[in-house]
Design a protein around this nucleic acid. Structure first.
Ligand SMILES: [Mn+2]
Ligand SMILES: [Mn+2]
Ligand SMILES: [Zn+2]
Ligand SMILES: [Zn+2]
Lengths: 142, 142
DNA sequence: ATCTACATTATAATAATTCTAAACTATTGA
DNA sequence: TCAATAGTTTAGAATTATTATAATGTAGAT
């Protein structure tokens, strides 16, 4: 979803009723300069602490999954223990900072096109995504 | 761990007491031709159904995590909802079959070396792994 | 054989997520 | 306008995966 867009219209187009909870969540998620990577927990915290709003946890889950189904959010597998979501729904690669647990998007120029030589009979490729795990390089440490 | 190895010795070397539960689990995990990718649930099922053994669920978790810490198993992030483990602990790429939820290892020749042009200040790269999601290509379907 | 540190186990606790069913509300159209 | 209705929110219960606890068992040392 584009930044500063008319969320009421966008929600309607997606067949989702523009309730105040959903509009608030759109603002949190999409009124940003950069891609937003988050866990449900992050999102709940932002809504309650930064926005001083109260949206039921069940609604946050429902809405995130509704947005995911409509293609406005994408789930990212980084950690088997919790779900990360991404407002950048295109196929793209990531850096994952193992110190801060932060995800950073790669753009086209950051990683050369991946060349897959193998193919699995009867199967087509749905996506090819690279995860680069990084951590502080402690060159100053012994 | 090599196939058909002396698991008692291997466990001792790792500083792990070779208990009967651990030896049994080594047999299930490492007496195989190919890399084994599994969830805890898969493993428990194999132990109880195929091996007709009873190992407490807590022990399965403890042992898998002990093996992981010693570098005999590696956790793979495919699905935020459950943990996959891999007996191939080297850095390698995967195909993931979205129909069967099966992981397949790539070998060196399957994917060309990944060229990363970006670097994050103060961070070093720990790993670069590619996940290729595949699904049945249904060319016969409408 | 005895000791002891470590391991196993059943069970309880926790955490993430989903379900349920009642209350609420956005939209429709009389 | 204003009910009717279908979709939505909500608190709380249920479920699932995982981890903690604490009692019991056992491998390895003496
Ligand atoms: Mn999900
Ligand atoms: Mn883990
Ligand atoms: Zn991203
Ligand atoms: Zn593998």
């Amino acid at each position: 979803m584009p930044k500063n867009c008319n969320f009421i219209e966008k929600l309607r187009e997606a067949g989702l009723r523009p309730t105040k909870q959903r509009i608030k969540m759109c603002e949190v998620l999409y009124n940003r300069e950069k891609t937003f990577h988050f866990t449900i927990n992050d999102l709940v915290k932002i809504i309650s602490e930064k926005m001083n709003e109260k949206i039921s946890l069940a609604t946050v889950y429902n809405t995130v999954h509704a947005f995911e189904k409509k293609g406005y959010l994408k789930e990212i597998s980084i950690d088997s223990h919790k779900s990360y979501f991404d407002t950048n729904t295109s196929a793209h690669h990531h850096f994952f900072d193992e110190d801060t647990h932060e995800l950073i998007d790669c753009d086209e120029s950051d990683i050369d096109k991946i060349n897959i030589r193998k193919n699995i009979k009867g199967k087509k490729i749905n996506s090819v995504e690279v995860l680069v795990r990084v951590a502080s390089d402690n060159q100053t440490q012994k």
